[in-house]
Design a binder for these strands. Sequence first.
DNA 1: TGGGTTAATGTGCACGGTCACATCCGCGCG
DNA 2: CGCGCGGATGTGACCGTGCACATTAACCCA
Lengths: 339, 339
Amino acid sequence: MADSDDRGRAPNIRDVARLAGVSHQTVSRVLNDHPSIRDSTKQRVLDVMAELQYRPNRAARALVTHRSRTLGVLASQRSQYGPSSIIQSIETAAQDAGYMVSTANITATDEASIVAALDHLTAQAIDGLVIIAPQVRVFRALSNIDLRVPFVTMNTNEVADDHAIAVDQVAGARLATRHLIELGHKHIYHLAGPQDWMEAEARMRGFLDEMNAQDVRTTAPILGDWSAEFGYHAGRELMRVRDFTAIFSSNDQMALGLIHAIRDSGHDVPRDVSIVGFDDIPEAAHFWPPLTTVRQDFPELGRRCVAQLLGEINGSPVGYTGRIHPELIVRSSTGVPSF
Amino acid sequence: MADSDDRGRAPNIRDVARLAGVSHQTVSRVLNDHPSIRDSTKQRVLDVMAELQYRPNRAARALVTHRSRTLGVLASQRSQYGPSSIIQSIETAAQDAGYMVSTANITATDEASIVAALDHLTAQAIDGLVIIAPQVRVFRALSNIDLRVPFVTMNTNEVADDHAIAVDQVAGARLATRHLIELGHKHIYHLAGPQDWMEAEARMRGFLDEMNAQDVRTTAPILGDWSAEFGYHAGRELMRVRDFTAIFSSNDQMALGLIHAIRDSGHDVPRDVSIVGFDDIPEAAHFWPPLTTVRQDFPELGRRCVAQLLGEINGSPVGYTGRIHPELIVRSSTGVPSF
DNA sequence: TGGGTTAATGTGCACGGTCACATCCGCGCG
DNA sequence: CGCGCGGATGTGACCGTGCACATTAACCCA
């Protein structure tokens, strides 16, 4: 009655070792795919593991290796389609690599809340960090905190940045703008996202670049907050003047609000105003009218984030793998101008 | 040169203890808010911690306490508004309690993929599990796996279930249905969600219950997949017969697809057909027409999930705190029937 | 004055892995 | 035949924390 006591305690490598007739170190080697283990021994150990339903203890492993096999994600607005899609794809890619993902959300925009979220993550002993709330403030906060781990972000600056996984937002915005110009629009507004967001800034820049390149008169963009609600109110305001025939919205939700406002003002899309969105949320195809928009490859984005991080963590950095190019999806919310 | 070597190694409680002139155990007590520590001692320790930028090592703590301070979330379709909102609220509540959250996503619907996701989570040594993909299959998979941790789910069965955090989906669906009946509709369809989902099943039941209670002729619900795309195709089919004046959709996205289809068929909402959705996604207010729908209190839901789990984990279970009652939001997609 | 009680702190070990190093064995070769 | 070598495995220490238990000081009351 001295041995073989399995009173609830989960089995550890020594239990496995004892039953397999080897040392705990041999079991550890099997776990880590060490090359010099005889096949017969390995199989015997694996059998015992299966029998005991052995599961390696991550905490113990993390304690000695100083690796938690956890990636952190700093997000904001994560109930929105873009962020949540990216998180999901990161999650999937990480899971495939045997990593877990811990997320922290920024609710307020003040620096204190950002620092708190970063604190929460660093307290988890994460091995790497993905920032999908690339607000300028976040970067400022980032520089005040010693992360001690590799991180990547959705940066879109031309400035070469080792941490940036780039979707070419500028190119996407130019695609959208060019589409409107080619239809014959001469008076185009841009409803931008919060300028605190790098994506918003990049899309706005793409818009302005293309307008200039095509020599079209540019008007100052309107700065929004990504929400349909804002799009609606901005639309109501704009329709009182009506000195334009098209609007390029920085995301689909604001585009939806715009359409709503235009119609509430007694006008029609695309007859009176053409609208282009950005993101191609699944609902965009069923807006009334179905929305012309720009699609981003979120799954690919997530995969690249994880690949880059794991590369850095394991000391074999993945080089700059080129930008991801968005795609213009033409539906019925755009047409030739009426005047 | 024998002591005071800080070659990159992160400080631990013994480092803190040495500098504070106490034992490592005293430091540990400060960390865990042990009552019998003299204030002066405690302050001295805290000062040293701040100076050293000491951070407790979670792995070491988890190793000895057998608690990872991590909650798992099993989700699916998490780029959709409902799931992602719940995840966010869970995340926030957990963060406030000093817990981290690890999510696993179910992509496929086969049992193998469910088991794989659960495996991924249990391998993380989670302390508790929230299941927000309450498909029937998940529960079947669940019974085959020995979780060994408390879990909660969004179950909505009448069957008293200790694990269920209940939003009264049935009541929400009845609210929506009653609204249509009170407007005078006699021929109402229901576009349900996948019956594999408990929410979908509960909303359908609410619909049928109310129809029976009000003695309205019931037609067999259509089984959808939550997507706007499906709503569109279902709508096109339905409009070929047109033996109804209202549709209650099990979520807002499908409702959007329905509206699109009705309009594509040359009809109008709500003039020819009234539509009610479920969820009140932020965009619903800006659909054309703005959607009448049922709102759920997601933040409260997340808080309750976490509260219940932490209660069970710490051995002081929170009792059944009553159901969360959804709210009907009346907008312009519903009106009196035209015939 | 002394024994009991409680508050405040210290001591050593356990948790479950990995790592560095030691050991053992069989084989080829000068 | 002895030596070196490399494959296969074992031994013991260590990672940073919390727990059980021991210890000390202080205080109270008979």
